[in-house]
């Protein structure tokens, strides 16, 4: 993903996340910063994906997180893993992209719960599996739309 895309996507995702949290029940409708990190990993380049995931996660932690570094570690890990996966699987079509982002979103939930358990951190407002599934689906739709739009503008290469 090109730097100019990140200049647009990361602040935009931050603003969208803030707007969702203002909506009360809509707070867990989507995780825009995770979507940006996963979309950045779709071309399959691991280092940019890792760095974008790190930055997106740090922004998420700083703005909305309870434990600094938690989202950074999760987003970075997922972006890096998805970039590695993209080296073996063709993620150029909408359906594979949607499945990858959906799976990544579910994995993010598992990783967060794992980190909380690992460090015996006081649990924050962790949504239930139903909410997380819905969020993963919305993330998948958002990710496919964002990736398609970025690809048309040549920002995804």
């Amino acid at each position: 993903m090109k730097p100019r895309a990140l200049v647009v996507f990361l602040p935009g995702a931050l603003v969208l996340g803030a707007l969702l949290r203002l909506g009360g029940p809509l707070a867990h409708l989507a995780d825009p910063l995770l979507v940006v990190a996963l979309v950045a990993a779709l071309p399959g380049r691991t280092r940019p994906a890792l760095l974008v995931g790190l930055v997106a996660g740090l922004l998420d932690d700083a703005a909305f997180g309870k434990w600094f570094g938690c989202h950074a570690l999760v987003d970075m890990t997922l972006a890096y893993g998805l970039a590695l996966l993209a080296g073996f699987v063709d993620l150029g079509q909408a359906l594979p992209r949607a499945i990858a982002i959906f799976g990544g979103s579910l994995a993010a939930w598992g990783l967060e719960l794992g980190l909380v358990a690992l460090f015996d951190l006081p649990p924050g407002p962790v949504p239930g599996p139903g909410t997380w599934l819905a969020m993963a689906a919305v993330n998948a739709v958002l990710g496919v739309l964002l990736a398609g739009w970025a690809a048309r503008r040549g920002w995804l290469d």
Binding site: L54, W67, G69, A72, L73, M76, T77, L115, D120, L121
Partner: peptide, 13 residues
């Protein structure tokens, strides 16, 4: 980076 972030998380316990 992962180790660093884990250390940061551990420090925040």
């Amino acid at each position: 980076l992962a180790m660093l972030l884990l250390a940061v998380l551990a420090w925040q316990v």
